[in-house]
Nucleic acid binder design. Structure first.
Length: 265
DNA sequence: AACCAGGTCAACCGCAACAAC
DNA sequence: TGTTGTTGCGGTTGACCTGGT
């Protein structure tokens, strides 16, 4: 490869983090804040690569991390969002306060992927495992007739986002439902600095009442605490956002078509 | 008790987008 | 405008755990 690794491998610790390393990293970030990951290990006195520090902080040490016990509401939300977004774990995680993309990805690959009959992302693992009996549960949508429609899976960053001047409330602080503003999980507020919603524009108009799937969310989630504070979005608005790739409009057109189809649960 | 298979999850890897120069 | 450095992302790996035999 033409490019050197992010850091020299020599003399650096690898593998599981020790309690001491965690302590050092946490203390350093509390004192100096996040960012500058490349220089962080040197400054903090850690024999770790900056990438490793970042990952450890984001996925494990951050104070707002929720660990384990993914609730039923969260599970359903993950399933729905995965149907919409595919393996874009950071976006999905952005809808789930306190959850990390890594945790959701793992949860999907080990639990949800099997439950709903989707292929885990880890294809190599599947090869050595027997087929899974996909029985729909009472709480899950009907098993998809075919592979879930995935927009795309390549990693892309989305930083050109217009943040709302009035950030939506956290999921953990539900607001009363306004009957005039149907709710949608995709409008749940982004709570993580590393992952923001592409539909962050403040001026789009909630309007998805023209499709047979307009109640995709508000029906299924009408009883969900998690989703009582979210508002619907419009695919056209979403697709036109600058942060999406040029071909995203096409993909979203396909997605809109999919949502209009009878096959959509 | 020992072994094995399968499941879970933290960590690593390589790529691509973005920022700085 | 092009190049280089940095950051963030999804995919993948492997150590550890657990349950069955």
């Amino acid at each position: 490869m033409g490019r050197s690794p992010c850091c020299s491998k020599e003399g650096l610790n690898r593998g599981a983090w020790t309690a001491l390393e965690d302590k050092i990293l946490t203390a350093y970030i509390k004192a100096h804040g996040e960012g500058k990951w490349r220089n962080l290990p040197k400054r903090a006195g850690l024999k770790r690569c900056g990438k490793s520090c970042r990952l450890r902080w984001l996925n494990y040490l951050r104070p707002d991390i929720k660990r384990g016990n993914i609730s039923h509401d969260e599970e359903e939300l993950i399933i729905r969002l995965h149907k919409l977004l595919g393996n874009r774990w950071s976006l999905i995680a952005g809808r789930l306060p306190g959850r990390t993309d890594n945790e959701i990805k793992n949860y999907w690959n080990t639990t949800l992927g099997k439950k709903i009959g989707a292929q885990p992302t880890n294809q190599s693992r599947l090869k050595s495992k027997p087929p899974i009996d996909h029985k729909p549960t009472t709480t899950e949508p009907e098993a998809a007739p075919a592979q879930p429609q995935v927009i795309r899976t390549k990693a892309t960053r989305c930083t050109k986002v217009l943040m709302p001047t009035d950030p939506p409330p956290r999921l953990s602080e539900p607001r009363p439902i306004d009957s005039t503003t149907p709710q949608n999980p995709l409008q749940a507020q982004p709570q993580q600095t590393h992952s923001v919603a592409p539909w962050g524009s403040t001026d789009f108009t909630p309007d998805y009442g023209t499709t047979t799937n307009s109640n995709l969310f508000n029906e299924d989630y009408s009883n969900s605490n998690l989703l009582q504070n979210v508002t619907p979005f419009k695919f056209e608005d979403w697709a036109s956002n600058d942060c999406l790739e040029n071909n995203a409009t096409l993909d979203l057109d396909s997605l809109a078509f999919l949502l209009n189809s009878e096959e959509w649960p």
